[in-house]
Amino acid sequence: MNELQLINISKHFDQKIVLNEINFSVRKGELVSLLGPSGCGKTTLLKIIAGLLPPDGGQLLFDGNSILNIPVERRGTVMVFQDYLLFPHLNVWNNIGFGLRMAGKGREEQAKKINEMLELVELHGFEKKYPRELSGGQKQRVALARALAIEPKVLLLDEPFSNLDARLRESMRDFVCGLQKKLKITTILVTHDKEEALLSSDRIVLLLDGKVQQIGTPEEIYLMPKNREAANFLGKKNYLKGRIEKGIFYYSGGELKSEERADGTYWMMIRPEEIKLKKDKGNASAIIVDMRFAGDRIYYKVKLGEEMLECLMLPDTIFSIGEAVNLSMDLQNIILFPE
């Protein structure tokens, strides 16, 4: 059941088109990530959904009804910004209770809800503290509590983990996703970090150049990207040029059956983790040009003939630069992109 629907949403600033006919919907209780590079209009889209900016075209439906004419404060969508924007002149208790206070709820009702929220974000004991006394993670939890206190219909998160250090990022991500699942709250999360999107979302909307490139589950987006731009955004990829003639794809490494494809020039996309390196047994065809050790994995740059390939391996064997190796390729999930 579609709760939030975006239909042909467009937005431009001066002459520049920032959002070009954006179409997607979010189901109730779903967490959808808007994934895209910085400055591609994701935050703008979020602001349009929240009501801070009007779209230049298109429709925004909630439960089938247009919400474009409903002002910000009555939309039922809540946005949490990247820098949390806690009110500096109010303590934690009053920050969390702000929305309730503005809605005119009674003192007791406020207290009940605020305590509930404090419990949820595990910040009991922090009621009297002021934002300036809190750490980054604590501020984010207060910002979340403040947003959830008014029981919004849609939660909008703008790059919520960008301001946190790596370890905190992981724990906050688990925390927020756990919270979202528990409360079953419809959420849209904006991020430029593909790992974050892959790990948190039920579905991902890939936004490039102001257009929706692809919508799908993390698996679909990663394993079956629609085009090269989408594929490249989700990580470094290798491309081997070749030709299809009469249902067979010929490339530098051999040939492949591809009956359903038309004849022509194609690029075969193979992922770094699908290329395996093996020790030289006397007939090595490739040579290691670069090696980067990343703890739980190793990144290699390998020269095979004229091609330079990226390769990702587990650290069970470590090859050194200049070493000759043999390549084997896992062709299960390769994709042929037409030129």
Binding site: A50, E73, V78, M79, F98, M102, R146, I150
Partner: peptide
């Protein structure tokens, strides 16, 4: 903007 989002 943040205040209005929260319903003020």
């Amino acid at each position: 903007q943040q205040a209005r989002i929260l319903g003020a």
